[in-house]
Nucleic acid binder design. Structure first.
Lengths: 137, 137
DNA sequence: TTTAACTACTTGCATTTTGCAAGTTGTGCA
DNA sequence: TGCACAACTTGCAAAATGCAAGTAGTTAAA
């Protein structure tokens, strides 16, 4: 990471948020943790389409620095770490939910993965509440 | 533009959305149009912190291609064009609103600009409805 | 108790994207 | 006819990204 983020801070709430997750991968990392329950580096890396390992490491570091997630040693497995969303990270649930609703409306092509869109369409508030509580949607 | 978007399409709704506005500037362009009523190239360029002119042109083109906005000649001024959000673009209002709510909660530093956060906090659904209707929040 | 395998990264380098400054095109106005 | 405005385009340097390979600490097997 060369920059410390917040190059563009302007006081605008949208700009503040985009400073933190306004890139290609950050929200996907958050989604994988919130929606799919990914907790380790390996789960995040092999979870999907394919983020480069160096970019994943960089994003995890940034997201930790900005308080979206925290990192701790796995008590069960000494060679593994566990990444967990903080309340600040889990509170992005409504953002994920609204994005999913929007995509469900306009992406007529296949909606695959976890059926997250379906869940949100069926019970948006329940999904948000569960993620906020640290549970799977 | 070198890429035609959708490099990462995976069927996931979040990934679909990020293909369209998952970068540093797209959502800020949409915000300026939806929240601040920006309609011309010049208004978008001088609106804020400073997007490069070539990047702005590229983003407008991509957003037009993906159906978020449309471009037409200004009947009042032959040397100007008018950019307008489509329904697909205006339907991003809930995403903007939730981002603003999240930022209002976690960005203790100054919230400036239009007071969008305040409006959303006071009347989220009203703000969303007005943007969806093509009006200012 | 060496050896292999796992897990989480780093490093180097080529490619792509971004940002900045300057230039171009097509009106409209004096 | 000349100048200014509005919307871009172009060229190039800087930064971010992607890919492949390598490193470090830990565990588990031989």
């Amino acid at each position: 990471m060369t920059e410390k983020h917040s190059k563009y801070a302007s006081g605008c709430p949208v700009a503040y948020a985009l400073d933190i997750f306004g890139d290609r991968w950050s929200l996907l990392v958050i989604r994988d943790m919130a929606v799919k329950g990914a907790r380790t580096y390996g789960e995040l890396q092999n979870g999907w389409e394919g983020i480069s390992t160096n970019i994943l490491a960089q994003r995890l570091k940034q997201l930790e620095e900005t308080g979206i997630l925290s990192k701790s040693k796995d008590p069960q497995n000494g060679r593994s770490y566990i990444y967990t969303l903080t309340p600040k990270g889990r509170d992005l649930a409504p953002v994920l939910a609204e994005i999913a609703l929007w995509s469900a409306r306009y992406n007529k092509a296949g909606h695959a993965m976890t059926g997250f869109s379906d869940k949100v369409q069926a019970d948006r508030n329940g999904v948000v509440a569960r993620i906020r509580a640290g549970k799977l949607p």
